[in-house]
Simulated scan of single mutants.
Amino acid sequence: MGHHTFDPSKAAKLEDPESRYRFISREGLLWALNLTGNENVADLGSGTGFYTDVVAPHAEHIYGVDIQEAMHDFYRDKGVPENVELLASGIEDLPFASDHLDDAVSTMTYHEFASKEALSELARVLTPGGRLVIGDWSANGTGEAGPPLEERFSVSEAVSALRAAGFDVEFQAERPETFLVVGVCSE
């Protein structure tokens, strides 16, 4: 399942608020993160920075992490907020010290990196009590939008994987095409 990346030649498609907010709203994302304004946050698979731009005004520092430099190029052309730092990296080997991040968010990218190694790495770099917010395409969806169904995970699969990596699941919801999970890094 999963582990593909988004085609950078279609990056402009990721900037459409009507289609993006249909699946994960700005309000829902900020509610799940519950930021105070003092956090170091990583946007995992940040792409064009669409959701990074939503989070940036509410965090001290945000890292836009994407494995594709072409996505960072698109974001740079669009304009990157001052408190955003772009990093080219996979999730399995993040360039952070242990306990460096207060929170991390993955919007529609979990299916691209979901693995024991990636979740273990996130548990390493998040502070105890740090939140991992995952909004992604559901395996129980119709497949009319997003990646093919065979590349998706169900909310129960995501919750099981998070728990196995040492996260306490604070919230989970399945929607018609997507799911939302909030995991808290245990000590």
Rank of each mutant, 00 (worst) to 15 (best):
S19V: 15
E69I: 03
Y63L: 07
A114R: 05
T127V: 14
N38I: 05
F113Y: 15
K13L: 12
C185T: 05
P147Q: 00
G143Y: 06
T109P: 01
E121M: 04
A32R: 07
V105C: 01
L162N: 09
K13Y: 14
S46H: 07
L101A: 02
A70T: 09
T109N: 10
G146Q: 07
P95V: 09
S46I: 14
Y51L: 13
A118K: 01
P176I: 05
K78R: 15
E174T: 10
V54P: 04
E117W: 06
R22S: 11
G47D: 14
F6Y: 15
L119V: 02
W31G: 03
V105H: 04
T109H: 10
E18N: 11
Y110I: 04
D53F: 07
E82H: 06
H58M: 03
Y75P: 06
A145Y: 12
T142K: 04
L94R: 11
D168Y: 13
A104S: 01
S9M: 09
A158H: 15
N40H: 12
P57K: 04
M108T: 09
T142S: 13
Y21S: 01
A164V: 06
V41Y: 02
K10T: 15
H72T: 11
V159R: 03
L149I: 15
T107L: 05
V55A: 01
H100L: 02
K10C: 09
R163G: 14
S120W: 00
L101K: 01
L132D: 00
V54D: 12
G28Q: 11
E150F: 13
P176T: 05
A12P: 08
R131E: 07
N140Y: 11
G37L: 03
Y110S: 01
E85S: 14
L126M: 08
W31Q: 14
K78C: 10
L94H: 11
D168F: 12
E85I: 10
T52C: 05
E144Q: 06
P8L: 13
A97M: 07
A97T: 10
E69M: 08
E150S: 07
E121P: 03
